[in-house]
Design a protein around this nucleic acid. Structure first.
Lengths: 199, 199
DNA sequence: CAGCTGACAGATTTCAATATCTGTCATTCC
DNA sequence: GGAATGACAGATATTGAAATCTGTCAGCTG
């Protein structure tokens, strides 16, 4: 909180921004506040981020990327069979989102507001995640575990069909009793669909 | 719009309420406005609906029930095979929601606001719809088209997995290009999952 | 001279005064 | 006497004046 007299970097600004967001919510996350938290004038922040929107975008991207990175590990665990890898990946996605929503609901709500201001960043994040899914499904198609003509299309379908377990608009239902059974039921159905041998 | 001097009934109040909502949106839908539209004093409205919330609830229920009713026809079309009936039903649900959202976006937005104020009414509506789905899936299980141990659980899974195509929180994506292909991909996957013979 | 500052114009947000609404009920009307 | 009214108290929403914020830039500072 004291104006650490290191040089002002984009990274330090992003850290301060996240801290301000955590404390005050999305409405109060003004550029002036961020500058105040860093002990600099707001003009300096504009040297690193052209607009307030760019700053919000960068901090949101950082937040989303942390999730992508966690999941990337599962994609490459090539010792497990693709069916199990798919289940693991989806379960990890659900767990990650649920944690973010549960541990710091304020910050999660904040980012939920930010994400639906910022179409582009979210679009890329989803493309990233469905890309990971595509790799798992392609592996399964190669090994004969899955029978799908178009792994990328299948990946999008799986991602969309599990939206209830990762889309922020359902966050308030993630603590409902029975949600884990619902998750398992949906995933089972999808895995069976992907595995089904007949065309 | 003149104060039709018929007696004041709950039904007439609901009609007027929907009209006011359509014209002014959810914020401006005051009891006073509804009364004004009917040419009566607002005290009279309170004779039929104990609170403003009860009025909003009743008008919302009416709106949701119109959708349920349309779909009920498909459930009982027992001449078609269950797989096709399931596809038809899901397509009809998507079409119905998409129409409501597209034809009168104002009114749809209004009801979207109302529905997430009113948990209970929506819960019942969803129970009604998954009930219809359960009947189709049960029929399919009986005929051997579907292999599911618990049709009701499968119905909930199918309903949740298709949320992207009926949940209002996705309404803005219903006009995106490629949405029909996405719908077909998800439904195909689910139908294959339900049909899969292995355990 | 590269990085920072702070004053500024125009846009946005806050806040308190004002107006409107909700829900009740004693009274009026047919 | 059953249905409707309209005045009322407390809660909620609207409004516009004042405060704050965004984004720029000429000038300071090291």
């Amino acid at each position: 909180m004291p104006p650490t007299s290191e040089t002002l970097t984009a990274e330090r600004i992003l850290e301060a921004t996240e801290e301000v967001l955590r404390r005050h919510g999305p409405a109060k996350a003004t550029v002036v506040d961020v500058a105040r938290a860093l002990g600099v004038s707001h003009g300096s922040v504009y040297r690193h981020f052209r607009t307030k929107a760019a700053l919000r975008e960068a901090v949101t991207k950082r937040w989303l990327d942390r999730t992508s990175l966690r999941l990337a590990g599962i994609v490459d665990a090539e010792d497990r069979d693709p069916r199990q890898r798919l289940r693991d990946w989806l379960a990890a996605l659900f767990a990650a989102k649920r944690h973010k929503a549960g541990d710091d609901p304020e910050l999660f709500a904040t980012y939920t507001v930010l994400t639906d201001e910022l179409g582009g960043v979210v679009f890329e994040h989803i493309a990233d995640l469905t890309g990971q899914l595509t790799r798992i499904i392609t592996a399964g198609a190669g090994s004969g575990d899955f029978s799908v003509p178009d792994p990328a299309a299948a990946a999008r379908a799986v991602f969309q069909a599990t939206g209830r377990f990762h889309d922020p608009c359902y966050a308030r239902e993630w603590t409902a009793p029975g949600i884990d059974e619902e998750f398992t039921a949906v995933v089972d159905l999808l895995v069976r669909g992907l595995s089904s041998p007949s065309r």
